[in-house]
């Protein structure tokens, strides 16, 4: 038995109809490691991280998360998901709940934490992401950057072991990107295990131990941020980097 990571893909395949969207993925993410996943659109990077908490199902291969096999009937996915925070590109805050209610919903109903205690922790988390004054605001009253920070606080409220980020800054106006990245850097520096789908190279260079480059459903290249950005080894990664660097 080989050593297992916090997230362990072993020969994972997935199809959408005839399209092989994940091709024989083998990738291990260690505890406290931050892995950035990048690649052209349609390369399967979002699908990859959505498999980790079971938002997508895999066809074959093994995916072991926190010691449990995803997709195995013996695995309680609902309880596994409580250990995994997921930050969406489009935030997906609950529009009928305030920022604080968004953060405390799962702790109160899933973790069964008493309301007063959950609200205290929720206020602290919102303060931590710089939104102490927006506790009672509804999502529609917040900017995109503020909404995404609430979404991160919502995940942290569950005290997860893993955080997944699916293009967390892609839907944001440029001036709001850094406020979200700053929060993500802070989370990474506290030792969270993270998989982040993003093209933000500044973030990758700052906190990622590894960059994984995907194309057409396969992992083409993987290395430290410095190796990958300064000395890409394949034509495809060079072509990709020249495109995102041009702007």
């Amino acid at each position: 038995m080989t050593k297992t990571g916090m997230i362990d893909f072993r020969g994972v395949n997935k199809w959408f109809g005839a399209l092989n969207v994940l091709k024989d993925i083998t990738l291990s993410v260690e505890p406290r490691e931050v892995v950035v996943v990048c690649g052209p659109s349609g390369s399967g990077k979002s699908t990859l991280i959505r498999c980790v908490n079971g938002l997508e199902t895999i066809k074959d291969g093994n995916l072991i998360v926190d010691g449990q096999r995803v997709g195995d009937p013996a695995t309680n996915m609902t309880s596994l998901r409580t250990e995994i925070g997921f930050v969406f590109q489009s935030f997906n805050l609950y529009p009928h709940k305030t920022a604080l209610e968004n953060v405390t919903l799962a702790p109160i109903h899933v973790r069964k934490i008493p309301r007063a205690e959950a609200e205290k922790a929720g206020r602290e988390l919102l303060a931590k992401v710089g939104l102490a004054d927006k506790v009672n605001a509804y999502p529609a009253q917040l900017s995109g950057g503020q909404q995404q920070r609430v979404a991160i606080a919502r995940c942290l409220g569950m005290r997860p072991k893993i955080m997944l980020f699916d293009e967390p800054t892609s839907a944001l106006d440029p001036e709001m990107i850094s406020e979200v990245l700053d929060v993500m850097v802070a989370v990474a520096e506290e030792g969270m295990t993270m998989m982040v789908v993003t093209h933000e190279m500044g973030f990758a260079r700052k906190v990622a131990q590894r960059v994984v480059f995907m194309d057409a459903g396969a992992i083409v290249e993987s290395g430290t941020p410095d190796e990958f950005f300064s000395h890409p080894r394949t034509d495809r990664s060079r072509a990709f980097l020249s495109k995102i660097l041009r702007h």
């Binding site: 908490n53 609902t78 995994i84 925070g85 969406f88 997906n92």
Partner: peptide, 14 residues
């Protein structure tokens, strides 16, 4: 929207 269900699913709600 589907995203609402996914967010609820991801946070472990039954």
């Amino acid at each position: 929207p589907t995203g609402q269900v996914e967010a609820a699913l991801a946070s472990g709600l039954s």
